[in-house]
Simulated assay, not measured.
Amino acid sequence: MKINLITGAVVIAAITALPAVADSQALDKTGWPESFTVGTGSQGGTYFGYGTGWANIAGEELGVSGAAEVTGGPMQNMALVHSGDLPFGMTTMGPAAESIAGSNPIAPGLKMDKACAMFPMYQTPFSITALSSSGITSVADIPEGARIGFGPAGSTSDTYFPRMMEELGVKFERRNGGWSDLGSQLQDGLLDVIAFAAGVPVPAVSQLEVQTDINIIEFTEEEQAKITGAFPVSDFDIAAETYSSLDNPARSVSMWNFAIANCDLPETFVYGVVKAVMSDNERMVNTHKAARSTLPEFWDRNKVMKWHPGASRWFQENAGADIPADMIYSN
C-alpha cells in the first residue's frame, strides 16, 4: 500500500536525459524504469539544488529521464521511498534512524525499512541567522518569545533544531515554511531568527547576504558540547569562505546526509546511479558546493540503514568497503 504524502508538491526541473555513455550499455537493464524522480526538499534549500544536480548527472549517464521533486524533506522522503511512491530521495541519519524505528511522525508505528542507503552526500550543519539590525549576535541574545523559522514541517531542521534550542534554554514561537519563504519573512521583519539545518552554503542565506546585512550566529564551546551530548550530531566548523558575512569559521554541529533508494529497485539500476554520481566528484561539485564531501571514503558514515545491494556492490568494488552482510538488504 502506497502512502500519498505530497500535498501541493510540484515536480521541478524535469531533465531530458542525453544519450547514455557507452559504459552504461554493459549493465543489464531488466526492470529499469523509463524515468525516475528524486525526493528533495523545499526550494531555496540545499536538498533541492543538490538533488536536481545528481538527478541530471545520473539521467545523462544512464539514458533515463530524471527529475527532482519538491517534498517536505528527510522525514517525508523516508516515507515516500519506503512506500515506493518515489524511487529515490535524500535523508539525514537522525530522521533515518527514527523512521526505521517506527517513530516517523508521518506514519507513527510504521517501521520504514524499505528505504536503503545509496551513497554519502554531505554533512548538514545546524546554523542560526538573524538580521544584523536585530542586535542578535549569540544564542544568549535570542529574546524570549522570538519567532524562529525552522524550515519545512518534518524536515531535519524542524525535527531537531527546536529541541536543540530548548536544550539551550531558548523560549520561542515555532514557525515553519520553505527556506526561501522564511528568508523573505526574516527580511520583512516577520521572523526574528532562522534556524537552518542544510548543506552550506544555504542558497537562502547567500541570497539574504546580497540583499541585507546578516549575522551568522555560532555556538559557544559550551553550547556545542551540550548539543553533541544530547543529539546524534558531531562538531563542525562552517568555513569562513562559505559566506561573505563570516570573517572566521563559525562553530556549529552537523549530521550526515545520504541518498536513499527503494530497496526493491533493480540492483543494476542503483549500481549505475551510484557509479554516475560517485565517479566524478568535480562534476558533482559543479552542481552544488556541498558535494565536496560526496566521496567514496565516506561510505562508513552510514550506521543506520541497510544498503541497497547495487550500492553496496559499487562501494565494495571501488572503495574497498567492508560492509557486513547483515547491513545489505535482501528480500
Rank of each mutant, 00 (worst) to 15 (best):
A240F: 02
F219L: 10
F231R: 15
A230N: 14
E223T: 12
S234W: 08
S245C: 09
F231M: 03
S234M: 09
L246R: 13
S234Q: 12
L246V: 11
E221H: 12
G229S: 09
T220M: 07
A230E: 14
K226L: 09
T228L: 10
F231N: 10
S245G: 10
Q224F: 10
V233H: 00
Y243G: 00
V233P: 04
A239Q: 06
D235E: 11
D237E: 14
T242E: 02
S244D: 12
S234R: 14
F236C: 09
A239R: 04
E221N: 10
D247V: 03
E241R: 01
P232Q: 05
Y243W: 06
K226A: 09
S245H: 14
I238N: 01
T220H: 11
D237A: 04
T242L: 02
V233L: 02
A239S: 10
G229C: 05
A240C: 03
L246D: 08
Q224T: 14
D237Q: 13
G229N: 15
A225E: 12
L246W: 07
Y243P: 01
P232E: 03
K226Q: 10
L246G: 07
Y243I: 04
E218M: 02
S244C: 05
A239D: 11
T220W: 09
A225R: 15
T228V: 14
F219Q: 05
K226P: 04
I238V: 11
S244L: 05
E222V: 12
Q224C: 05
S234I: 12
E221W: 13
I227R: 15
A239L: 04
E241P: 00
S245L: 05
F219T: 04
I227A: 13
D247L: 03
Q224H: 08
A230R: 15
G229L: 06
L246N: 15
E221L: 13
S245Q: 14
Y243S: 01
